[in-house]
Write a protein that binds this DNA or RNA. Sequence first.
DNA 1: GCTGCCGTATAGAGCGCTCTCCAGATGTCG
DNA 2: CGACATCTGGAGAGCGCTCTATACGGCAGC
Lengths: 346, 346
Amino acid sequence: MSSRAPTLEDVAREAGVSRATVSRVVNGVRNVDPAIQDLVRRAVARTGYAPNRAARSLVTRRTETVALVVSGAGDLSDEAQDAFASRVFSDPFFGRVVAGVTGYLRPRSMYPVLMFAETPEARRDVVAYLRQGRADGALVVSTHAEDALPPLLAEAELPAVLFARPARPLPLSCVDLAHRDGGHLAAERLLARGCRRSVTIAGPLAVAASQERLAGFRRTMARRGHPSVPVAEGAFTLDSGRTAMAALLDEHPDLDGVFAANDLMAQGACEVLRERDRRIPQDVAVVGLDDSSAAVTCRPPLTTVRQPVEQMAAAMARLLDEHIRGDRTEPASEIFAPELVVRDSA
Amino acid sequence: MSSRAPTLEDVAREAGVSRATVSRVVNGVRNVDPAIQDLVRRAVARTGYAPNRAARSLVTRRTETVALVVSGAGDLSDEAQDAFASRVFSDPFFGRVVAGVTGYLRPRSMYPVLMFAETPEARRDVVAYLRQGRADGALVVSTHAEDALPPLLAEAELPAVLFARPARPLPLSCVDLAHRDGGHLAAERLLARGCRRSVTIAGPLAVAASQERLAGFRRTMARRGHPSVPVAEGAFTLDSGRTAMAALLDEHPDLDGVFAANDLMAQGACEVLRERDRRIPQDVAVVGLDDSSAAVTCRPPLTTVRQPVEQMAAAMARLLDEHIRGDRTEPASEIFAPELVVRDSA
DNA sequence: GCTGCCGTATAGAGCGCTCTCCAGATGTCG
DNA sequence: CGACATCTGGAGAGCGCTCTATACGGCAGC
């Protein structure tokens, strides 16, 4: 940063043309004589010109930046909030979200701004951030149902796309998994393996996705002659999976199949099953859901229901992009189909 | 977004004062009559005014945004690069970095823009991003030694702070761990437990940190009568820890202590040890390094050398902030002390 | 040779904000 | 009571860019 950074004006002088011509060359080039284009490009290279984005944003009212918000319903202390960030990222799920989002954004020279919204104050900050035009829109991943952020965004009429349908209908686009079908696939797999005493570790029942996965699983089980399936509620964490599995084993020592509503809980379940000398899958078959890195890491590798998180996240980014550019005015929802991935655990 | 967003001008009219006065009230307030301040504040509330950041940035030449760059030496394909993002985030280490960084930034209404720089092109994009003034500086976390990004940033004289000292000296600030001391602490712990045939799983030896941890471990072992310690090289991943442990066990079936250069590899080592019916810590003591979530998740919970990643990341953000504001002109390096955390594995 | 067109470059008006400079008001002291 | 320091608010000049309206040059048609 020795002297002043070169401006359009400088390049124009260097090339012997007007500022507007340089601007046209640098951007989408409408009608510029090829010879002059070349002249300008050389001048840009010579001066090392980099367009000032603030100036551009001021007139275009675009920043080419989107917020990636990880949001919860909670009202945590500052301390708990810092822990929140690392907890969030310890779940392989978010890595996949980030991968999917950046996969779409990067080719467009857009980058996500990472924000956490675990307190009312933080949620206000997110809205303020967008209203100040520091980002063009928000991609919201909620860790809880009843997340207070989406309604705020809808009310402020800010462009936003949600991962997972909100508890209450909202005029915002979203992507989601066909959770019922996921539960169905898991049930089919356990039944196909001949499991007769299956149990399930559900996700937090306050979350719609958990409810749906459970409902899908139960319905298929019921239709196939197993009207009641023991359920333990978990929290989508490894530890909660362990606890739930232990409880289920205590009550139903003869269980022979487990569907855990995500891979992390399935992994916890596997650990407990092994500690209690159940062979997987010979004695107990285990099916997870997600197909995250945990599924591969797990011993044995998990048979699981794949949630195409990367594609879903990319679709989220695309939807937002369309809203921002005005190519899409009505909210849309894209629902993705789950898919069974067979490994060793079932 | 119904009509136009209110501007300073609108608020000024509403309050019956000049634009400059409103600006003064909204910002750091030089000398404004309290009564007028109140008047203005009310007008701001009434109009729902939110300052346009692009306009402000244009004149202040600040965006109050920093880039958080995860960078590698590689030159990956697009596909591999997408996988890179999720791999990066599956390591609990990065969650802690994010937590530390946001812990410092958020109270200052600053947010990190997430960028990956795994290809030469991506590295150019990062530099371009900063040169366009879309962010005021960069926080760089390299996954490899010989990362090509820091030299680029130094050359362009862009504000940047690194996590870990670069392979070659560079005029950039950085934070780092006293890695040798970490190796030393691990050695002391194993010796104190009476281990006489310790081995170590090193990190990738291309990384300076791995070298240092190994050197510290070896030196202490040598000084205490164990001049040669078997070493296997890992890659800081769970799987590489498993592989290394298996190899070491094959060659030294009577080993009684293991120092793994990070927790993830220690966890892999524990898994293999248990599969081969070694009790931890009775038969083999295991010490990790990091004190990440993996240390707690591991069975048994890991005795480990704590790396204060959150504080280090926060310090990184603070250093960058100081550079940006011009409060600090010379590069500085802050080295943090590791600390032994005793749990069950040693 | 004049008019009318088309295609390309230029001039110039902002975008919304900050900040310097200046005017005016008020207070202080010889 | 006048000269001067002190404080507050206002006017206005940009920051660097985009984009509309306009000028210009060349060419076809009559």
